[in-house]
């Protein structure tokens, strides 16, 4: 009967790993796949900027002003004769940093506040959520601009401005997830065995929020990139001569008819990266959804 025993064991355990499912789902989702490829290119451009940029992005050469895109300058030059391709490549560093760091900060703040609000409920919940409502009631751009004007324009202040605006959305999502999760029996089981509240938050609630946080994170990055671009465009963000895509659009707009590529090229870059992150985020959400439902 040994073979029978083996047959039992074979039939017993369902072999389905979480990541295998994820990859499987991505294979079927073309736009998520394209998004991930674009992002890999984007990130490697940012990391390898000094090695792949054909020119120095800050090198002013008035003789090369407003060169059309050509074999020499693939994407043309701007009003100071700087190579736009090189500036785009260096600009991707700023966009990446702006995309990642404030989003990360706002996610951390939002997650902590959301978990606490959802789990403890009552007054704690009320205070945190009203605060989030207030933040969300303001037009986010206006709020960010107010912060920038008060604190002055610098990279650090951009982080603060974007984080201050974006945490509220995360807090709401995490809170609603926590409200569902805390009613689950495994949380009850932890309470019964006497697990402390903060351990329940950390070990039981937080890991189950990770899939949605992952989606929020990927969708938050393009938001932050766009905010930075807008702030820079309005002149309160990154200051010249730093190469930021938003700033490049802003400075290029004056020559839109004379040399349209100066403004359009960085605009298209913003568009592509934002779209790629959105595709990836949507793909992740679709892939992770069955697990959320479970």
């Amino acid at each position: 009967m040994e073979s029978q025993q083996q047959a039992i064991e074979q039939s017993q355990y369902l072999e389905e790993s979480f990541f295998a499912e994820l990859i499987q789902s991505f294979k079927q989702n073309k736009s998520a796949l394209v998004g991930s490829i674009v992002l890999v290119l984007f990130i490697s451009a940012a990391v390898l900027a000094p090695f792949i940029a054909p020119y120095d992005p800050y090198n002013v050469d008035m003789s090369q002003q407003f060169q059309r895109p050509s074999a020499q300058y693939l994407l043309g030059t701007d009003m100071f004769g700087r190579d736009i391709l090189s500036r785009i490549i260096y600009g991707s560093r700023i966009s990446l940093v702006i995309g990642l760091i404030p989003t990360l900060i706002s996610m951390v703040i939002g997650t902590i506040l959301g978990l606490v609000a959802g789990y403890y409920g009552k007054k704690t919940d009320y205070i945190i959520m009203r605060l989030a409502d207030i933040v969300m009631a303001f037009p986010s751009l206006l709020l960010a601009m107010v912060v920038m004007y008060t604190l002055g324009a610098s990279l650090l202040n951009i982080f603060i401005a974007i984080s201050m605006v974006n945490w509220a959305g995360t807090a709401r999502v995490v809170r609603s997830q926590t409200l569902v999760l805390k009613e689950k029996e495994f949380v009850e089981a932890a309470k019964i065995m006497g697990v402390k509240n903060w351990v329940i938050l950390l070990r039981h609630l937080f890991p189950n929020c990770i899939p949605s946080l992952l989606v929020l994170f990927t969708l938050g990055i393009p938001d932050a990139i766009m905010s930075e671009a807008t702030l820079s465009f309005l002149g309160v963000g990154v200051q010249p001569p730093m190469a930021s895509w938003g700033l490049m659009v802003s400075t290029g707009k004056e020559f839109l008819f004379m040399a349209p590529w100066v403004a359009i090229v960085p605009g298209v870059a913003i568009l592509i990266v934002a779209l790629a992150f959105n595709f990836l985020g949507d793909g992740l959400r679709d892939a992770l959804d069955p697990y959320l439902k479970q």
Binding site: F186, E188, M193, Q294
Partner: peptide, 18 residues
């Protein structure tokens, strides 16, 4: 809490999936 324990109805919801 050490001396009293609970067994739940739903074997899917009572274990932390992560």
């Amino acid at each position: 809490k050490k001396q009293v324990q609970f067994i739940f109805q739903d074997p899917y919801a009572c274990l932390n999936p992560r």
